[in-house]
Computed example of a mutant assay.
Amino acid sequence: MKLKHALLAILVAVIWGTNFLAINATLQDIPPLLSVALRFLLVVFPWIFFIKRPAAKLSMVLAIGLTTSLGQFAILYLALKLGMPVGLAPLVLQAQVLFTALIAMGFLKERLKAMQLIGIGLGVLGLVIVGIGRAQLAPLLPFILTLLAAFSWSIGNVITRLAQQTKPSSGEPAASGLSMVVWSSTIVPIPMFLLSLLFEGPNALGEALSQLHWPAVAGMLYTVLISSLVGYGIWNSLLSRYPASAVGPYSLLIPVVGIVSAWLVLGELPSPAEVLGGALLLAGVGFAVLRWPRPGLVPPVVAQAPKRQPVQSRR
């Protein structure tokens, strides 16, 4: 990967790692379900009028929206509102890599390599340690909800892979690019507004607007413009240039950025159990996403053509 593209991948990791601070700021003034509804309403409009619909089937686009967008973020926002630490949330969400591998093995018949199986085992062990650590300090429900958010994201990943396997007659990528982010988000606002009306009450929007402070507004704009549109725009452009195995490992920086930023801004410090479990989880994710050369495989040597001897001219 070229240096400028590697720097862009690091930038996306920083954007997505600090995105949890923005979500936390939004949740201070706006209830979680209403926050998700407003976020994706702004992701869709006005951008949908300027961005062409992705080439994937509409059913797959909506399924990706239901899982990657609605399912993941509705559960995640609720978990953060109920007390999931801002720094720990991006770490636990990395479990989506492990879930994706297992679901793909079951539904896409993908064979897992030995290193991936080791990674899944390490990741599960890390999650168990983090869960035990959280149970000793706080209620376990926010942690479980964050795992469910990661699981919903992983289902969306598998559906995205299925969409990418289709070959539209137009020759365009079926499930990549900013268009998938915008168009798949169309299924989110209406259900979330209805859920907000049901569980948060009909006065939730009016009360939120009446007590809105600038950090909540800035947080909402950050999640929409920077995290959703800029972040996914850069990330998808990198995936169009390089294989996923070259781009994916940069996502390991997201929880690191999340933990450090939460410590610097909110003063959150992970417990020893969370540090140990988090390290095992990241190691497991690393084993699952990194490419490992086969043992004993030697790179082929390219034969060089013999140098031509200069021909001496006869006088």
Rank of each mutant, 00 (worst) to 15 (best):
L195S: 06
Q96D: 04
V311P: 12
V301P: 00
P249D: 07
P85Y: 09
I155N: 00
W235M: 04
G87C: 05
M192W: 01
K2I: 10
N24I: 07
A25L: 14
A138N: 13
F49A: 14
Q312A: 04
T160Y: 02
Y250K: 05
T26F: 08
P46A: 01
L38D: 02
L194S: 08
L264K: 07
L125K: 01
L194T: 11
Y242F: 06
P293K: 02
L76V: 08
S271G: 10
A56N: 03
I103L: 12
V14N: 08
P142H: 01
F143W: 05
L225F: 14
L3Q: 12
P270K: 06
S69Q: 15
L93V: 13
A138M: 14
V124S: 00
A9C: 10
L98F: 03
L252V: 09
A89V: 11
P32Q: 11
L122S: 06
V158R: 00
A218R: 08
L3M: 13
A204H: 04
P310K: 14
A208G: 08
F40I: 03
L3D: 10
R134Q: 15
L140V: 11
I254Q: 07
S196W: 03
V289S: 02
V97C: 04
A208T: 08
S228Y: 06
L225I: 14
V257K: 01
K52E: 15
Y77N: 13
L27P: 02
W235E: 00
V217F: 09
S261G: 09
L66N: 00
I155K: 00
A149Y: 00
G131Q: 08
V181K: 07
L82W: 11
V289M: 03
S59C: 08
S35Q: 03
L225S: 12
K2M: 11
I10K: 11
Q94W: 05
L239H: 06
A288C: 12
